[in-house]
Nucleic acid binder design. Structure first.
Lengths: 146, 146
DNA sequence: GTGGATGCAAAGAATTTGCAACCAA
DNA sequence: TTGGTTGCAAATTCTTTGCATCCAC
């Protein structure tokens, strides 16, 4: 992620955190920084490892991820087996991914079905609509090394 | 599901099962019948309950669901929290759903991104491509009773 | 009879909850 | 000081594995 994008997200996160009544702790600062270094969605454990200076408990990681989600700056990504990865995003944005089943390498897709999906869901009388879309496959590297 | 569609799926499942070297047991017959009675994807536990005449272990249910998936006649559907629902389908078909977060009521969506997704994934050098897309919301009934 | 199918127990992985101690504002 | 935050332990939920027994073919 470009330096300026990264620092802007950092500042925005702090603002939103405080606006929601939360506090900025050392752990959160490091976790946030760790999240920003990923160029792909990561698991809770991966995030904890990368934020090693803070030596956080995995529980703390999960709780903070939920906090970041609540302020609209984190997206959960589901793997095919149901486990989740986490990705810091600009406020209330979301992305769809092409995910390698082997190495979890991830690329953002240029594709969103927001309008279609929203309209159909509304037509069925649904509210609080959200959608999930991910594409899975084996990337070229993993294919070759198999 | 219409009677004839249902029995056709049943027969197809048996054929494919045998073709793959599997056997038709009493448990499987009842589980298959139970799956056909659902008009929406269901959890392993729900499927087991509905197939009560067979009194199957939950493990057996999971193993059979995997078997049905292997013969191309079962689709897994992920809820937002990563737990899975299962749905019997015509051979190698798949659907996308509008799912109520509260009651798990489900409607099939008239929408598929197969071609777009496949092309983009192929462009990135991926193989064995599959995709997941589900829409979540609160249905009218649940909204009113809240 | 032979190999696939099943049940029981147990393991596993991912995630959540309770509670006391801790620390930012 | 006060209430949000954290760590530790433990519980929960969903799903998978091992192994002996069983049954379809």
């Amino acid at each position: 992620m470009p330096e300026d994008t990264s620092s802007k997200l950092f500042v925005t996160a702090i603002d939103r955190l405080k606006a929601s009544g939360g506090r900025m702790t050392k752990k959160r600062e490091v976790l946030l920084g760790a999240l920003l270094t990923f160029d792909r969605p990561a698991s809770a454990e991966e995030i904890r490892e990368r934020a090693e200076l803070a030596q956080s408990d995995l529980v703390t990681v999960y709780r903070n991820l939920e906090t970041f989600e609540n302020i609209g700056m984190l997206q959960r990504v589901l793997l095919e087996n149901g486990t989740q990865l986490f990705e810091l995003t600009a406020p209330d944005e979301h992305y769809h991914h092409l995910i390698c089943r082997e190495c979890h390498k991830t690329e953002r897709l240029d594709l969103c079905v927001n309008n279609t999906v929203f309209n159909q869901a509304k037509k069925h009388g649904y509210t609080q609509i959200a959608h999930l879309m991910e594409v899975y496959g084996i990337c070229g590297d993993c294919e070759n090394s198999a």
